[in-house]
Write a protein that binds this DNA or RNA. Structure first.
Length: 121
DNA sequence: GGTGCGGCTGCAG
DNA sequence: GCTGCAGCCGCAC
C-alpha cells in the first residue's frame, strides 16, 4: 500500500535528509588510518554512483564536524582537494597523523583503502 | 518539469 | 603516469 502524502509532513526533503544521514553513517564507519573513495562511500551509503554528490556534501560539512571527512579521497588514491588549499593541507596532515603515508601526493589504496567488512578495522 | 553542474569514475590515447 | 572524454546520480536554479 502507498502512504498518503499528508501523512508525512516532512515529505518535502525527507529523502534527501535520509541519504545525508546514510552518508554520515558510512563516513563515520571508516576506521582510523583507513580511507575510502567518493564512489565507494556513495555505494556504502546506498547512493549508488552518486560519488559527485558525496564530494559536494563533504564540502558542505562544518569545520567543527566530528565526521572524518579527511578519510575520503579519489579512487586513484589522491586527495581531491588541491595541495595548496587550506582544506587540502589539513586533509593530508590528518591522514598522516593517523599513520597514512603519502608518496608523491598520493597514498596506497591497497594498503589504506577500506571497505565494509574489512577486518583491518 | 527541464537544464546545468558537481571535491567522481572508468576507459582510451 | 597524466590528459581527455563520456557516463552517472542527485541537487540547485
Amino acid at each position: 500500500m502507498k502512504q498518503d502524502a499528508h501523512a508525512s509532513e516532512s515529505h518535502s526533503s525527507d529523502t534527501g535528509e535520509i541519504r545525508r544521514q546514510a552518508l554520515y553513517l558510512a563516513l563515520a564507519a571508516i576506521p582510523l588510518g583507513k580511507v575510502t573513495s567518493y564512489g565507494e562511500l556513495a555505494d556504502i551509503a546506498g547512493l549508488g554512483r552518486a560519488a559527485r554528490w558525496v564530494g559536494r556534501e563533504l564540502s558542505r560539512l562544518p569545520d567543527g564536524s566530528k565526521l572524518p571527512w579527511h578519510r575520503v579521497v579519489s579512487a586513484s588514491g589522491r586527495p581531491s582537494l588541491a595541495a595548496g588549499t587550506l582544506s587540502g593541507t589539513e586533509q593530508r596532515a590528518r591522514l598522516r597523523a593517523e599513520g597514512v603515508t603519502f608518496r608523491n601526493d598520493r597514498l596506497d589504496m591497497r594498503l589504506h583503502g577500506w571497505r565494509p567488512g574489512d577486518r583491518s578495522g
